[in-house]
């Protein structure tokens, strides 16, 4: 009896599966994970990557401004920092015809083509966290001063190392302008403040903390006088901190970003200095400009905003203005 049922239903099963998957969106929209609903305008937000504390903190800040102004936020992205994947997401977002796009571009050249399609469809675009080589038609860009942030870290590293030994820089991949700016700022400031320090060649460890962990272990072997490590992103910092912790070494780490994990490493003493970007302010400004523009108040939209980064260490972490710039947890 069951046998015959199963035999008959084998044809139907894949169709049923397909139908359920296709119709599920209808149900999912009402749950709206991460997408607030209701509202007169829709603003699409496409981050560099999903599941990331920095971009998620920006989103939460956007959400609070959006809710106060009756705006729906549509949050779509990819888990990989990849221009092709981001382009595919943008093409799909374009089909929904949002009223405005806030984009954190993953490449200064490659993302111009999809952005142009939005501009051609009369959808205004705001850029955050990265620049495009060609920014014609963009209504606003909001960036952190990456070079200054790197310099902050470099100056602190000179103090932490007493100006002696070898310092290593761990990055995820070379060629990303905002990351390269951090490295440059760090290197220049460190060499100015501590000319006797040896700088090891920059390590490109990849996007996974465990890769940075492996790289740090190798660095400890390659440089017995390793006196400090600069983590260009939170991924690198988290990996380096884990490696030092496992080896029982207390080598100073200066790192970019202030994710919950980095903050706990700071409190444990593994990381000595964090350069926090003002993610909350970036999100608030971006959404505020969006609101102003959509309501016809174009004069209130600033064309170029560059925000300062904030140095965080054990001395100032308790202060309320510092707590403002620490990142919240990642959302999907």
């Amino acid at each position: 009896m069951t046998g015959r049922f199963l035999r008959k239903s084998r044809w139907v099963f894949p169709f049923l599966l397909a139908a359920v998957v296709a119709l599920a969106p209808g149900c999912a929209i009402t749950n709206g994970d991460g997408n607030s609903s209701g509202g007169s305008f829709t603003v699409a937000y496409v981050p560099g990557v999903t599941k990331n504390p920095y971009f998620s903190t920006i989103k939460r800040a956007m959400d609070s401004v959006a809710e106060a102004n009756d705006i729906t936020v549509d949050y779509q992205g990819t888990p990989n920092f990849d221009p092709t994947e981001q382009t595919n997401v943008l093409n799909a977002v374009l089909a929904q015809k949002p009223d405005l796009l806030i984009l954190a571009p993953t490449d200064p050249v490659a993302l111009r083509a999809p952005v142009e399609r939005f501009l051609a469809a009369d959808i205004p675009v705001i850029l955050i966290d990265g620049n495009l080589e060609n920014e014609d038609g963009i209504i606003s860009t909001i960036q952190s001063d990456q070079e200054a942030g790197g310099r902050l870290a470099g100056e602190r590293m000179a103090e932490l190392t007493d100006g002696k030994g070898t310092v290593a820089v761990i990055n995820i991949v070379s060629g990303v302008p905002s990351l390269d700016a951090r490295v440059e700022g760090f290197t220049n400031a460190l060499q100015d403040a501590a000319p006797d320090i040896e700088l090891a060649p920059v390590q490109n460890a990849g996007g996974n903390p465990s890769q940075s962990q492996d790289t740090t272990r190798s660095l400890m072997v390659a440089y017995p006088d390793l006196a400090g490590v600069f983590g260009v992103t939170e991924v690198n910092a988290e990996g380096a901190a884990a490696a030092f912790k496992a080896a029982g070494k207390d080598i100073p780490i200066a790192a970019y970003d202030a994710t919950p994990l980095e903050v706990s490493y700071l409190e444990e003493g593994q990381i000595d200095f964090l350069v926090a970007q003002n993610a909350k302010r970036i999100g608030e400004l971006a959404m505020q400009f969006a609101v102003d523009y959509l309501n016809g108040d174009e004069d209130s939209v600033e064309r170029h905003v560059v925000l300062d980064t904030v140095g965080v260490d054990l001395e100032n972490i308790e202060q309320p203005e510092i707590a403002e710039v620490l990142y919240g947890p990642a959302i999907n």
Partner: peptide, 14 residues
């Protein structure tokens, strides 16, 4: 599937 779910504004995990 992938494009449709984005257009439907569904969380990317789906």
């Amino acid at each position: 599937l992938e494009t449709g779910l984005v257009i439907a504004r569904v969380n990317s995990a789906w």
